[in-house]
């Protein structure tokens, strides 16, 4: 028996959310008295992979197949299922992400496993195997019992801290057989913002709404975000009007974020927007309307004109 954890990379490095998943997996492994094995697929630097050991994993399986350099949902599911069989895994842990969301269901079918996505806490193994996840787009939680022999869990971002415990990992090349039919989805082009902090991964998010009056005023949002090391987001009307790209839209039908700090500027706080941010640890709302519903969901608020408040915040942020 063992626990398997999937490592997702970005430009050869291990994503923060993957380290959170590793800590989640090793903590669960400790509870169950079993070992944890990590699986990394695609291009990683050698130091990146061995550094996973610092988070308590003794072994890393590295799938180096060139055809898997880019995420291929079907082939990745096969590779992970093969790794789970090889390691006799009882639980497979994955970090929640856009790629994992697409992979995990196929993996669950291959392993005939019960699956829970977006776990917010460690499983309760005191009687059965129970996992808590958020539902109704962050408006509630449910506890789910997994009764299958193999269990598959994706861990919500920023729900479980990545903790270094020391140690180093042995990296082993793993070459599972992947049928040609797994390559029936062809990636023809990728458009990705570079050099930006990615919204779903960010610790701090600065978001702007219609109160900013137009795309030409986004300079100060970007500047404040830069000073804070934050990602930029926006409300649905802003992305609908093409002031900002769709991948910045935070809300019920856009990106759901769970940063440590969410700063909303000129966003009134429609319930659909709140659904995308209510897992944030701390929410700051800046709005000139004191009646804006967002203040009810906020930890800190400033009633004021964004065009006066934000430049002052930028100056203050420079001194941090």
């Amino acid at each position: 028996m063992s626990i398997l954890v999937f490592i997702e990379g970005v430009e050869g490095e291990v994503k923060k959310s993957s380290l959170e998943a590793v800590s989640y997996a090793t903590e669960l492994a400790k509870k169950k008295g079993v070992a944890t094995t990590a699986v990394a697929i695609g291009n990683f630097s050698a130091t990146a992979l061995s550094s996973i050991g610092k988070y308590g994993v003794a072994k890393v399986l590295h799938v180096t197949n060139d055809k898997l350099a880019q995420v291929n949902v079907m082939a990745y599911a096969t590779a992970l299922a093969e790794a789970a069989k090889k390691e006799n895994a009882e639980v497979v842990i994955l970090p929640k992400s856009s790629a994992v969301d697409a992979i995990v269901s196929r993996l669950a079918v291959k392993l005939n496993a019960g699956v829970v996505t977006g776990a917010v806490d460690l499983p309760d193994t005191s009687g059965g195997f129970k996992v808590k996840k958020s539902i109704y787009t962050g408006k509630a939680f449910t506890t789910v019992e997994l009764t299958s022999a193999i269990k598959v869990i994706t861990v919500a971002k920023n729900a479980f801290p990545a903790t270094e415990t020391g140690g180093s990992a042995q990296v082993e090349v793993f070459a599972p057989a992947i049928p040609e039919s797994d390559f029936s989805i062809k990636i023809t082009k990728t458009e990705k913002a570079t050099g930006e902090i990615l919204l779903p991964e960010a610790d701090i998010v600065v978001s702007g709404g219609r109160g900013l009056k137009g795309p030409e005023n986004w300079g100060m949002i970007i500047e404040l975000a830069k000073e804070l090391g934050a990602a930029t987001g926006c409300s649905k009307p802003v992305s609908d009007m093409d002031w900002r790209p769709h991948h910045e839209h935070v809300g019920q039908t856009g990106v759901k974020v769970s940063p440590n700090l969410y700063i909303a500027i000129g966003i009134s706080g429609a319930i659909q927007h709140l659904a995308g941010v209510n897992s944030s640890k701390c929410i700051v709302v800046i709005n000139k309307d004191p009646e804006a519903p967002f203040f009810k969901a906020a930890d800190y608020g400033i009633v004021g004109d964004a065009f006066e408040v934000v430049p002052k915040l930028i100056e203050a942020a420079k001194k941090l």
């Binding site: 856009s98 029936s184 023809t188 990728t190 458009e191 990705k192 990615l198 991948h247």
Partner: peptide, 14 residues
């Protein structure tokens, strides 16, 4: 086109 973190990926399948 599918949305990925920070962008889009264009894919084809039969």
């Amino acid at each position: 086109a599918r949305e990925i973190e920070g962008g889009k990926e264009y894919v084809e399948a039969t």
